[in-house]
């Protein structure tokens, strides 16, 4: 069953993430995806994540399609103007890609080419609208298309954002222009996530709660300090700090599983962002009762 079918049916869905390599060597990345075959319903493929130049999301999505794995094509507004974005959506469709996750994208200054021109001709809301319009058979200027790309469109939301009201206003706009599912920023505070879910229940749109495995106490502290809307509770930081280096993956999986079990009670799916720890995802899913 496809990701879209499962979502529509109301089943609990699991997605993971693939970061394309910096270069052309794709074997390792494909092996990491292969390990999760049958365990996840879709693979997000990041679009020059953190504004670091690397292999493109479009090509990697196509490689997954060829292998019978279902990609979720992440597309950001950082690097392409409205012509290129629309064209790439058409390209994605003919390459067999059916799910698209639309994001604004990080600013180039945060990546490895900080001198680059930031494009942001469209933003996440206007690009979603454009993608919806393409799906109806017209480009954003109203010109007719010969064959239309009908995607399942998704977007992101940050349940820990402050002020949350402002975040929800943007979420509402995304729904208004065609977002059919949401993946969230990493969740560590289930009570806060529950409050968020109560606020967004009325939208009746599937939400996939984000999971990032903690690799160390230092990583948790860094995220608390730098990453928007992320607050790792002291309890988890302490667990990671007390674990010996060898034990960390086990403790991290224990924390992740606890969060996934909690998320499972609150929303329709989970989105795992392994950030290099792809090899631990099967164990995480097993520990969460999802494998």
């Amino acid at each position: 069953m496809s990701f879209a079918e499962k979502l529509n049916k109301g089943s609990f869905v699991v997605t993971s993430e693939i970061g394309p390599p910096k270069g052309t060597e794709v074997e390792k990345m494909l092996e990491e995806a292969e390990v999760l075959r049958g365990m996840v319903d879709g693979f997000n493929v990041t679009d020059l994540q953190s504004s670091v130049m690397r292999l493109g999301s479009l090509a990697v999505c196509h490689l997954l399609v060829e292998r019978g794995l279902e990609p979720i094509f992440q597309i950001t507004c950082r690097d392409r103007n409205r012509l290129a974005l629309q064209s790439d959506l058409l390209s994605a469709y003919v390459l067999g890609i059916r799910n698209v996750l639309v994001l604004t994208g990080d600013h180039p200054i945060l990546g490895d080419h900080p001198e680059a021109k930031p494009v942001f001709d469209l933003d996440s809301v206007s690009l979603l609208k454009v993608a919806s319009t393409l799906g109806e058979g017209e480009d954003m200027k109203g010109n007719k298309l010969d064959g239309k790309p009908e995607f399942l469109l998704g977007a992101v939301v940050n349940p820990g954002a402050d002020p949350l009201e402002l975040q929800l206003m943007k979420m509402e706009k995304k729904i208004e222009v065609g977002a059919k599912f949401f993946q969230t920023q990493a969740i560590y505070d289930l009570r806060k996530f529950e409050e968020f879910m109560k606020k967004v229940e009325k939208y009746k749109v599937p939400i996939l709660g984000g999971i990032v495995l903690l690799k160390s106490a230092g990583m948790a502290k860094y995220m608390n300090e730098k990453v928007a809307g992320v607050s790792v509770p002291e309890r988890y930081i302490k667990m990671m700090a007390e674990a010996k280096k060898k034990e960390r993956p086990r403790i991290s999986i224990q924390i992740g599983a606890e969060l996934i079990k909690g998320i499972k009670q609150l929303c329709q799916g989970v989105h795992i962002m392994p950030l290099g720890w792809e090899r631990y995802v099967p164990r995480l899913l097993e520990a969460s009762g999802l494998a």
Binding site: H107, L110, K170, A228
Partner: peptide
């Protein structure tokens, strides 16, 4: 806004400060 966004924040701000 360094991204010149028209439809709301990018979501990168931490404690009210711009990520860029």
């Amino acid at each position: 806004c360094p991204k010149g966004l028209l439809n709301g924040p990018c979501g990168g701000a931490k404690n009210g400060k711009c990520e860029v």
